[in-house]
Amino acid sequence: MLRKAKKIISIACILTFVLPIISYSIDKEEFLKFLIESSYPEASTNNDNSKEEKDKEDKTANNKEKDYIKVHIGEENVPTLNNKSDNKENISVASSEYKNDIRLTKEDPTMLIYHSHAGETYSDSPEGNYHSQNNRDKSVLEVGTLLTEQLSQKGWGVAHSTKYHDYPDFTKSYASSLETVKSMLNNHKNINIAIDLHRDGRDLNTDADMQKENERMTTTYNGEKVAKFFFVVGMKNTNVDEVQELAEDITKFAQSKYPELVLPIVKKQYGKFNQYMAKNHMLIEIGSNGTSSDEAKASVKYVAEILDEYFKQNR
């Protein structure tokens, strides 16, 4: 009891006297780093690459940074593509093809598509600050469903997970998706390409903000307005050189085919995003909350073409 009392007194002293001194004696950037490292062990700047640290969730979570918006998750819905969309590339996929939130286009897939933030929706679904499970046809899940279909038509065996990893706790999204990735890799040994598919998120408070973001994240090909895409690299991965090299190679390849379609790579200094798990692991952002779901879906045929040609040339 005496030991516990001493410990409590010590903590109280730290909270009362030391923390105020720390907060005033270091600049804002250093204090922010202190808070991140204290709250999210994954983000520590210490060079600790132990197995336990490697298996932890990337708790930095993009919603902690200014350019990522807050979330609200609604109730879950059944996965299906909306075949009433004006997008002619839309392909209807029956919900019966998904068992336990997984669809396999071949018995022995080599590619995995999943969504750490499955609740992300586009500009035509503003519910919950562009995060919901109620408008699935206007969400990143439908973009993943379409990408799965496009790649499977090109001969790829694809496993697509439609699990909501950001529900009920958004801050545990990457811990939850890590378990999905581990399970899929254990059950399907030939998967060596993994795609965590997202859409970018910005604070859009006015119509002018929305218009500016739409202009930033769209272009036109063959008379059709399409959403741009880009790669995100977590710089805390032990294999960061390989992750970055892959993103740079595909970006360069995409620029050679569709120069206006792909944006520069975004590097997150305190992130891992589970990118150490697969040989070829990518975090791809297609469109943003400033683009419509149809604009995002319209770009899928180009993204599928790029990925198909790149990996067939670099097997």
Rank of each mutant, 00 (worst) to 15 (best):
Q153K: 15
N49I: 14
D207N: 06
N47H: 13
E42N: 15
Y68W: 15
T105W: 01
K99G: 07
T218S: 02
F311H: 05
N62T: 09
K33Q: 11
I9Y: 00
K257I: 13
Y270H: 06
M184R: 08
L204E: 00
D27Y: 01
G144A: 04
E76F: 08
E76C: 04
A43N: 08
R216D: 01
Y24F: 14
I8L: 14
F170G: 05
H188Y: 13
I195M: 12
E295F: 08
D241M: 05
S85W: 03
K154S: 08
M210S: 04
E309A: 06
L15E: 05
N134L: 09
P79F: 00
H198E: 07
G234Y: 11
T145M: 14
I9H: 04
V143T: 15
V262D: 01
E30Q: 14
L141D: 11
E305L: 12
A227T: 02
A304I: 11
I21T: 10
P264N: 04
S293L: 02
T238Y: 10
T105Y: 00
G144H: 07
I73R: 13
Y164P: 03
K279R: 04
K66L: 13
V158H: 01
G223K: 04
H115M: 12
D48C: 02
A175V: 08
E29G: 09
L2Q: 10
E53K: 13
A159L: 15
N63A: 07
E285K: 02
I11Q: 10
M217A: 06
I286T: 10
D124K: 00
K7T: 02
V71N: 09
V303I: 08
K84D: 13
P259C: 03
D209A: 00
Q269G: 03
F273M: 15
D200N: 15
R315V: 15
V233H: 00
L283Q: 07
C13Q: 13
E242H: 06
P259R: 00
T180L: 12
L151H: 03
I191R: 02
W156F: 09
K59C: 14
V303S: 05
Q244I: 05
Y258S: 10
H188W: 02
L2S: 11
I21Y: 09
Q153A: 12
L19N: 02
A278R: 06
K268F: 05
V243R: 12
N77D: 12
E57I: 09
V158F: 01
Y114R: 10
Y276L: 07
I36K: 08
N186G: 13
E57N: 09
S85T: 11
S25C: 14
I102Q: 00
Q150T: 14
K268M: 06
A296F: 05
E29H: 07
L112F: 12
Y310F: 09
Q133P: 03
E30T: 15
K54T: 12
D67R: 04
S293W: 02
T16K: 03
K70G: 12
K4F: 07
E179G: 03
N49E: 13
P41H: 10
E75L: 12
V233G: 00
N90I: 15
E53Q: 13
I306F: 06
S256T: 03
N237R: 10
N274A: 13
H281A: 14
L178Q: 05
E30C: 13
N83T: 13
